[in-house]
Design a protein around this nucleic acid. Structure first.
Lengths: 300, 300
DNA sequence: AGAATAGTGTCTTTTAGACACTATAGT
DNA sequence: ACTATAGTGTCTAAAAGACACTATTCT
């Protein structure tokens, strides 16, 4: 490539750029929307029992149209001087007061009409923060932010086969609760396979209380979280500085929505954590060792 | 949520939307850029030997500024009436004449200044097509499209540790060749882990002949392809209707860039394919059975 | 005949699953 | 003493890695 090379109008690159006028193509707004997860303890009545873990997501009640009164994922428009990552990190800081957390781009949603006002794409991100950071600064902003408990379960599943294609249809019920407030949605996941290609679609079948297509974004985040849990150290970003292995296992269990065997679990995550030597105390039963995330790699 | 509810200006949602004027926030253009992979045979001199496989990607030589003469990923701007997926599929059809192929959203790149003309985000997609479809319609368009051979290898690797953080730095050399034409780039992948978070960045260190930040997009696609190969049936989208298991293994090998053991490989992909009963012939050695992709699921 | 690939058998190692057993602080 | 959790040992089953062996067709 040659910077001095001239185009069909006889312009060099520099000359071209100086004369360049952005054409009047229609442009979308791009928002960075955040699915911010954390896991909190739910206190138990029995002093001896361990607190149950709950997966929670941060939602903000809308104070204006459209979807006035509904709950939306925190998010904001991306500015020309920043990346979508930076817009997401900025939004995260504003809403929760935390920085330097796990942040991962999820997907860019672009369904026309997903925002009734104008053409808006959503570049969505997932953030994981540990519960000890949460309490400090949630609702720090003036707006009505709340940590909703997330429960997602498979409601029905069927497979439609024809000679040409095979479609697996799954319907998931998403339930979000926070105190009296209760939101719900049904997402249909259609996994289509033909001889040539294969594709997956997500549709919102029912939606009660969530703004825009945020039920879909949230569901997508849950799937990503669940998927990556198995082969990465993602879960450790949800843990506080010090934690017991049982707590870590509970986090896995609440996200994967199934019980795990203790021995196998401990073998599997053994090299993601390191011992601290200190122990819990006054728990009404045998103390358990505290671990921390092992972020130094094994290799030399 | 109540559609009839009125906001602080006393407007219902319908009234609000009717009066809504898109504010004069600056908006980005959004392009759907495609990394289209295929695997082709490279003919061998020896009549008995099997042809070697090569991973190839479609690039288009730019006929105007900026990056005049450089090669770019096929792509185009997203229109308000379509999703980014649809824009990608449209672009794919225009450039290669194929439809109904494997298509997957990769990542949305939004580095300010990645396009010297104006604010452009790239919502990138990866497509996999089989080589038998390629020859028919490549370069169908008037533009200068070519299938470049892709070779990507790790050049150097180091880990920088301090008390606070640990950074693993890898430099990959990307080489793209097509006839006389030869493009290259060096990508630095920085995987940073601290006690709190972890993040990965990709920087273009050197770039010879590729337009915009397309070297990074291409590298990102390669990583995704390699990663998903291990636990999905992605590779089968690169195969023609009928293929031998050795051919399939070669595709895995050329993408993963390492030899695989035959017996283990066959066990692993056994339930992704099905026998046809027909065999290759006149190959100068023992015939091998042809398989096809098994797209019917196993379950009832 | 023999080159080159096709395809299988089997031994070992690793990983995952299942379950039982022992250990121990706190009331 | 008893409850509820902590933590380990071990058997089994499944998966992955390694390698050798047999099979076959075309020139």
């Amino acid at each position: 490539m040659d910077k001095e090379r001239r185009d069909k109008n006889g312009l060099s690159e520099e000359e071209f750029l100086q004369g360049y006028q952005a054409k009047d193509y229609e442009r979308p707004s791009v928002a960075a929307d955040m699915v911010i997860f954390t896991v909190t303890d739910e206190n138990e009545d029995n002093y001896r029992k361990l607190p149950e873990k709950e997966l929670r997501v941060l939602l903000i009640q809308r104070g204006g149209h459209p979807y006035l009164g509904a709950y939306a994922l925190p998010g904001g428009f991306v500015r020309p001087s920043e990346t979508t990552e930076k817009a997401a990190a900025r939004e995260l800081l504003e809403e929760t007061g935390v920085r330097d957390v796990y942040l991962e781009q999820l997907y860019t949603f672009s369904e026309p009409g997903r925002d009734p006002r104008t053409w808006v794409m959503s570049c969505s991100y997932m953030a994981l923060i540990d519960s000890t950071k949460v309490i400090l600064s949630a609702g720090d902003d003036a707006d009505n932010a709340a940590w909703f408990r997330v429960v997602c379960r498979l409601k029905e599943e069927k497979t439609v086969k024809s000679k040409e294609e095979q479609i697996r249809i799954q319907r998931y019920e998403l339930k979000l609760t926070h105190g009296e407030e209760s939101l719900s949605a049904v997402i249909e996941k259609r996994w289509k396979r033909t001889e040539r290609g294969s594709s997956t679609e997500y549709d919102i079948i029912e939606n009660d209380g969530l703004a825009f297509d945020h039920a879909r974004i949230l569901f997508y985040a849950l799937e990503r979280l669940r998927g990556k849990l198995e082969y990465t150290d993602l879960a450790l970003h949800l843990m506080p500085e010090l934690f017991t292995l049982t707590q870590l296992q509970q986090v896995y269990e609440v996200i994967l929505n199934k019980p795990l065997l203790k021995a196998a679990f401990r073998r599997k995550i053994a090299n993601l954590v390191e011992e601290t030597g200190s122990y819990t105390s006054s728990a009404g039963h045998r103390p358990s060792q505290l671990y921390r995330r092992r972020w130094e790699d094994i290799d030399g």
